[in-house]
Nucleic acid binder design. Sequence first.
DNA 1: CCCTGATTCGC
DNA 2: GCGAATCAGG
Length: 173
Amino acid sequence: MSWTDERIDLLQKLWLQGMSASRIAAELANGLTRNAVIGKVYRLGLSGRTKVGGVTSPSPRPQQKAPSRAPNPRPTSPMVQGNTALAIKPAALEAPAPLPSRDVVVSMSEPVTILELRESMCRWPIGDPTAAEFRYCGARKTPGEGPYCSHHARIAYVPQQDRRRERRIQKSA
DNA sequence: CCCTGATTCGC
DNA sequence: GCGAATCAGG
C-alpha cells in the first residue's frame, strides 16, 4: 500500500492533532511503522510540529542536502512527548471546556487498542470487547507478572478475604 | 527499558 | 518516494 491522498490527509490530520507517530501508524493499521509515518511527515515538511501559542517556530528544515554531512543541526524542538504526553493539541485549547465528567478516573495515557498494547501495558479491558472502540487501559503494568497496572490490579484481585467460608466444614469424612 | 521525533541512506 | 536504520534525546 502506498500513500494515497486520503491516507496522507489522515496522516496530516492526526499528526497535527498531536498524535504520536507510533500511534498514527497503529491507527492506520497497515503494517506501517512509526518510521514510515515519520518519514512521510518529514517529506511532507510537517516535521517539527508547531507548538501551540501561535509562535510559529521557524522549523528550520534545510531541505538542501548537506555537502559532506550535516552533523546534527538539531534544533531540538520543544515537543511534549513521552508515553504520558497528553497530545495537547490546538484543538484541545479551542475545544469546549471538557464537561466535568465525573467518572474520569485517574487514567493517564489514553486507552490503547490491541495493536498498541505492549507487554508492559495494563490489559484491563475498557469498553465492550465486541465494539470497535474497545481498548485496553494501557497504563504501565505493575512490575512482575500482573497483567494490570497497579490501579486495576487492585480491582481485579480484590481477594476473597471476604469470601464466605465456602467449604464450611468437611470434618466428617 | 520504555518511549519520542529527526535524519540519513539504500532501495 | 519510501521506510528501516540510525541518531539524539526524555
